[in-house]
Design a binder for these strands. Structure first.
Lengths: 194, 194, 194, 194
DNA sequence: GATGAATGAGTGTTCATTCAT
DNA sequence: CATGAATGAACACTCATTCAT
C-alpha cells in the first residue's frame, strides 16, 4: 500500500466516483458519504484532498471541461485540410464525443449549469467554457465571412450545438449523435454557402 | 376572513414565493422555511396545500409550462396570416416571452432540467414540453416541406431555440432576445427557402 | 401538551440543561446532543429557540450575569443603614451568593472567561460585568474617600472578590464563603479606616 | 542532520507553537493541525513526542508553571534584605512577570483553569501551583504574624494577586502591572502593619 | 384554515489518532 | 526521526415533515 504520492491518484479516483454517484443518484443526493463509498474510501479523505465538497464538485467540472477541450483539440490537430468547414466539423464532433454524451457527464453538466447560477466559482468556469466554444467557432467563420455575419453565425452554431446536446440529454432516450451532428453541419454549410 | 376558496389563492401565492426564492437563493437553498417566509405564511401551510415539497416544485414547474403554452397560443391566435413562417415566428416569440427569460424563471428551468434527470414526475413533465415544442414546429414545417425534411428542420429549430435560451440564461448578462429571435427566424427562412 | 407560548419555558429549560451539562461533563464536552438529552428534548430544538450553539451559550452566560445582578441588587435594597460599608458588604455577599458558588455556575464562569478571550460577543458581556462590579464598589468608596483613593480601593476590592471566588472555585474543595467574605470585608474596613 | 538529542528541542518547539496557537486562535481552535503547522512540522510528530494532545497541553501548562516558579525564585534569590516584606514583594513581582502577562500566557492560563475543572491531571497541576503561592506567602507572613492571622493574610494576598491578574487578563486592554503590584504591596503593608 | 412547536434523520466538516513508508 | 495518508467517530446544523392547538 503506497503511502506517498497518492494525491493525483486519489483525486482522479474521487472525481470518477463523483461522476458515478451523480449518474446513479443525481447531484442532489450525491452526498459525500455516497461518493466516498463509491470510491471505496472514508468520508474524511475528501476534505484531505479537496478542501470541501465544493472543491470536489469544482474539480469534477474542471475535469469534464478539460476533457471536452482535449477532445476538440485532438480532432482539430488531426485534420487533413485546413478549411473553416473542416475545423467547424471537428468542433462539432468534439462536443458530441463519448466523453460528453454519457449519462454521468450529461447529468453532471445539467447540475453544473443549475448550480452555476448561484455559485460564482462555477459561473466563472461556465463562462470560460461558453466563450471558448463561441470564439473557436467565430474564428473559423471569420475566415469566410465578414465580421458581423461571422459573429451571428457563431452565435447560432454555438446555440445549435448546445441545444442539440441539451435536447439529447433531456430526452431520456439513446442519444442520436449522428443526426445531431448532421443538423449542425448543415447549419455550417448554410452559413458558409452565402 | 374568508375561510373557503382560499385554495387557488394560496397555491398561486406559494408558487410565486417559490419562484422568488429560487431567484434569490437558488433552488438548492430554497427550503420550505425560506419559501414560507417569502410568502408570509407558516411552514406548515405548504403540506396543507401541496402534499410535500416535491408537490410544490411540481406545481411551480407546471405553472411555468402553462405560462409558456399560453404565451405561444395567444400569439398564434392573434396572427393575421396563416403561413408556416408566421406560426413559427409566433412560436419563437413565445419561447422568448418575458415570462420565460426573467431570472427567476431561468433559474427554475435549469434546476428543473437537472432534477428531471432523476425524478420521474418531473421527467414526464419535461418530455411533454419538449415534445410539444417539436411537434408544433414540425406541424408547420410539414406544410411546406416533405415529411423527413420537416422532421429534421423541426429538430434543428427546436434545438436552436433551446440553445439560444440556454446560452442567454447562462451568460449572466442581460438577455438579448432580439438577436436570439433574429437568428432563429433566419434559420426558419433557410429551411423554408429550399 | 401546550403547543403555543413555549418559548420562555423552553429557553429557561435549555439554559438550565446547559448549566447542568457543563457541571457534569465540562463545557468542552457539553455538546448540543448532551444538552438536549439532559433537557429531554431533541437536538433540533436548540436551533429553533436559539440561533445556534453560541446563542445558547450566550443566553446561559447572560442568565448567570442577571442572577448575580439581581442577588446584589436585592441585598442592597434590603439594607437597614445607608452606609458605604453596608453597601459594600451587600455587594460582597451578592458575589458569594449560592447562585454563583455552585459547581455548575463556577465551571460555566471559568469556561466563559476562557471563551471570552476569543469571542467578541462574550467579551462584551464580560466587560460589562467587570465594569459593573468595579463602578458599584467605586461609587461607595467615593462617599468616604477622595476620588483617586476610591478608585484604587475599588480596584483592589473588585480584584479581591474575584480572586477569592477564583481560588475557591479552583480548589475543588467545599467553598468556604464565610472566610472569603470576612477577608473581603476586612479589606473594606482597612480602606475606609484611614 | 542530528538524529539524536532532538527530543528536548522538538518538545520546546512544540510547546512554544502551542502557546502561539492558543494566542492566535484560542485553545478551542488550537487543533493539532494548527499547532503542527505553526511549529513547521507534520501532524504525526506530536504523538511521537507527547503521547497525545492532552500530553502536549499538560506539558505546555507545566512549562508555564515552571516559568512562574523560576521567575519568583530568581527574584527572591537576588534580594538584598531578608525581610518578609521584601520576599512578599518578590513573590508579587514574579506573578506579574512578563512571562505571565503576555497574551499567549493569559489565554492559556484561562483555558487551563477551565479545563482543570474536568481533567484530574490538570487539576493536580493547578492545585500544586495554587498551594505553592499560598504557602510561600504564608511562610513570610508567619515570620511577623501569629499563625491564624498569617493564614488569613496569606489567603487574602494570594486571592488579591490572582484577582488582579485575572481582571487584567480579562480587560482586553494593556495590563497595568505597576498599579496591580502597588495595590498588592499596599495590602502586604496593611497586614504587616498591625 | 392556519400556526409553530417538535422531531430526528441526514449533511458537510473537523479532528485526534494510527501507521506504512 | 519524520512524514502524510487514512480513518471514523463526533460535531453543529439544516430541513422536510407531523401534529396538537
Amino acid at each position: 500500500m503506497p503511502k506517498v504520492g497518492m494525491q493525483p491518484i486519489r483525486r482522479q479516483q474521487l472525481i470518477e466516483a463523483t461522476l458515478q454517484a451523480v449518474d446513479q443518484v443525481g447531484m442532489a443526493d450525491a452526498s459525500i458519504g455516497v461518493i466516498a463509498r463509491m470510491a471505496g474510501v472514508s468520508n474524511g479523505i475528501i476534505s484531505h484532498y479537496f478542501q470541501d465538497k465544493n472543491g470536489l464538485i469544482f474539480a469534477t467540472m474542471s475535469h469534464l471541461l478539460t476533457e471536452l477541450m482535449i477532445q476538440t483539440a485532438e480532432r482539430r490537430r488531426a485534420l487533413r485540410e485546413n478549411t473553416p468547414r473542416a475545423h467547424l466539423q471537428a468542433i462539432i464532433e468534439g462536443n458530441f464525443d463519448a466523453s460528453q454524451v454519457n449519462n454521468a457527464a450529461m447529468k453532471t453538466w445539467l447540475a453544473f449549469w443549475a448550480a452555476s447560477m448561484h455559485q460564482p466559482a462555477l459561473h466563472r468556469l461556465q463562462r470560460i467554457n461558453d466563450h471558448r466554444l463561441y470564439s473557436n467557432i467565430c474564428c473559423q467563420f471569420r475566415r469566410a465571412l465578414p465580421l458581423e455575419q461571422a459573429r451571428v453565425s457563431a452565435r447560432g452554431l454555438a446555440a445549435l450545438i448546445d441545444g442539440l446536446w441539451l435536447r439529447g440529454a433531456l430526452s431520456g432516450d439513446a442519444f442520436d449523435t449522428e443526426q445531431a451532428q448532421r443538423i449542425a453541419l448543415e447549419y455550417v454549410d448554410q452559413q458558409l454557402g452565402r
